[in-house]
Design a protein around this nucleic acid. Structure first.
Lengths: 111, 111
DNA sequence: CAGCTTATACGACGTACGTCGTACTTCGGA
DNA sequence: TCCGAAGTACGACGTACGTCGTATAAGCTG
């Protein structure tokens, strides 16, 4: 009985993913940091992301990403582990996430 | 003296373009329709876009796109002509716009 | 000049967003 | 068993967004 006080973790199905929802989800620096971090480390607990917001704010951003189909989360013990839905995203939006992330890395590098 | 009662048309410089602003600008169906239309027809007056919003709403969306660097506008007589800043976008975000638009077309096609 | 067209400016409205603090639940370790 | 850690739920707050109606200005055309 995992965390009954929390909402059930619902993840949208592959065919439900919407491009405009994805763009909106990615158009935020905190969420972009989450996604970038997940591209380096495959799976992470919520509290280990290098972001500077309150825990409740972080929860909000995870929900946005989850409902847009960007991440998948699972509970294990006291931790909630998060992964990128890379395969699903590449199936639904081929090459798009890589294109966005590469562009963002280049922008952060100041080019 | 073109339209002195209107704000001067300011377009961000190439190096000022921000990816997150771009993503936000594209994360709206009306604005996406504008961009798609501009990819087919090179240049268009404001009133000729196949969107179903009030004129003042359309003005708002043009401003968002212009300030994000997606479009360029110029006044000629009574008309304001709009073009995609394709070269600038491809220079700053190589391949990204095409990737987004292709994905969106595929989604609209129902695939 | 008068009237129509094109498009914006401005203000209003309801909603969504990003943020936080607080309370709470669950799990794990001392 | 108790307490801290992890993370969420909920409500609040200020701001931004998408929308519109109305008023306005400039250009075109008769």
């Amino acid at each position: 009985m995992p965390r009954s006080h929390r909402r059930v973790l619902t993840h949208p199905d592959l065919v439900e993913l919407d491009l405009l929802d994805l763009l909106h989800a990615l158009a935020d620096p905190t969420r972009m940091t989450i996604v970038r971090t997940l591209r380096s480390d495959v799976e992470r607990p919520c509290g280990t992301f290098p972001v500077d917001v309150a825990p409740s704010t972080l929860t909000h951003h995870f929900r946005v990403l989850r409902e847009a189909g960007v991440i998948r989360q699972r509970d294990e013990g006291n931790r909630r582990w998060t992964t990128l839905r890379l395969d699903d995203l590449n199936a639904r939006f081929p090459g798009l996430l890589d294109s966005v992330l590469e562009t963002y890395e280049r922008q952060l590098a100041g080019t």
